[in-house]
Computed example of a mutant assay.
Amino acid sequence: MNEIRNKIKKIVKKQGLIKTSQLVSKLKISRQALHRYIKELVNEDVLIKQGSSRATTHYLFNNPSAIKKYHSANISFKKRCFLAGLEEDRIFQEVDKQEGLLAPLKANAKVNFHYAFTEMLNNAIDHSGSKFADILVNVNQRNASFNIRDYGVGVFENVRSINNLNSEMEAIQDILKGKNTTMPERHSGEGIFFTSKLAERFIIGSHRKKVVINNKINDVFIEDRRLLKGTNVYFEVNIDSRAVLTDIFKAFTNESFSFDKSRISVKLFSNGDDYMSRSQAKRILHSLENFKMIVLDFREVKTIGQAFADEIFRVFKKLHPGIKIEAINCNENTQFMISHTELGTIKKAS
């Protein structure tokens, strides 16, 4: 018995990571016999189990150099889940139980990963209308990421249809504001908003559009893509992330913990023209009456028209006196037009 145990340790230590089938082949013993030895070595913390099925189970020698070498490459979790009756936290538990997968994540990163994963999977369960979703989790020495793909109606089309918007582009613009949900009796509409704030990169694609939020450079992009049925969500966080989930909540909530602040990137509302008309301003302001604080980011906006500024900084403010509007990253031209309305708090671009 000790001879076989020693052989197992020697083989795993030499190879680093090995499949059950490879051990069976090398030792010339049955899978059942091997299982008894492996179970003992895992319970004694000599080996680390990686994977949870006959096809994917691997074993790793439990010492720092072997673990470091192992985590220099991607490790992953992959599963197709049927969504009817699915509980998102049960799937996260499966991810977490896969030995070594989330081990590299520091405490804050793991909390953020847990929140984002369960929020995005819950969206697929409740909103997509898809029979199933494909889930992929990858972890390497720097990043942890997940990808959730459903094959349903598509997030942008769902929001467009239920809110009677003119296009999926308008749906994207509303989603980025926060507080937008197609199921208000069960959801606050905050999931995508806060998940996107936690990520280094957050990408959500559906049909022919893709939204890329890159918090490394503090920017948002809307891109065309090849036709995609359903919705694909990608979330990536640094394993050493110091972002604190409660701090993100506090930045956009009031003392009563109500989500009351939205930050809008004005450049995303361009249709190729300058920002001149009242109708363009109304499009930006759509659904923002639910917030108490609106931050309008004018980065990369060259100029705005008097009607555009008047609709936001005089008309809307008069109709909603309890809402504060703050304009940031304004150039000289934009600042002049906003100041001309004598409303709003202006910050020069840094």
Rank of each mutant, 00 (worst) to 15 (best):
D96I: 04
S241K: 01
N218M: 06
K197Q: 07
M169G: 00
G191C: 05
D240F: 08
Q22D: 12
L105C: 12
S262W: 03
R31F: 12
N238R: 06
K19D: 06
L101T: 03
S339L: 08
H35C: 07
G85H: 07
K282T: 15
F77Q: 00
N232R: 03
V244R: 10
T56H: 12
R90D: 02
I213Q: 00
L136A: 13
F92A: 10
H320A: 12
I135A: 02
K78V: 15
R299F: 07
E3C: 03
F77S: 03
V24A: 06
K229H: 11
P104M: 00
N43T: 12
K26H: 06
L23H: 03
K209V: 11
K197N: 08
L198D: 11
E87W: 07
L41M: 12
L285P: 09
G272S: 15
K79G: 07
K78R: 12
I294S: 04
N2T: 06
N63H: 15
F221Q: 12
G322L: 09
N331C: 05
V233P: 00
L23C: 05
F259K: 02
I312Q: 11
H127A: 05
N180Y: 05
Y115G: 07
V301R: 00
P184L: 06
T56S: 15
F316I: 10
A66H: 02
E300Y: 13
N232P: 04
T195V: 14
M120R: 02
R283G: 08
N218Q: 10
E255P: 04
E99L: 10
N108G: 12
E190K: 10
F117A: 06
C81F: 14
M183V: 11
V237M: 11
I8D: 13
N164C: 09
N232G: 04
N271I: 04
L34Y: 09
E157P: 05
K131G: 05
G154M: 02
R80L: 15
T345K: 13
D89M: 01
R149I: 09
Q306N: 14
E157G: 10
F316A: 03
V111P: 05
G230H: 00
N331D: 01
G205C: 02
D174P: 08
Y115K: 05
V12M: 11
K179F: 03
N140L: 12
N6S: 12
L228T: 01
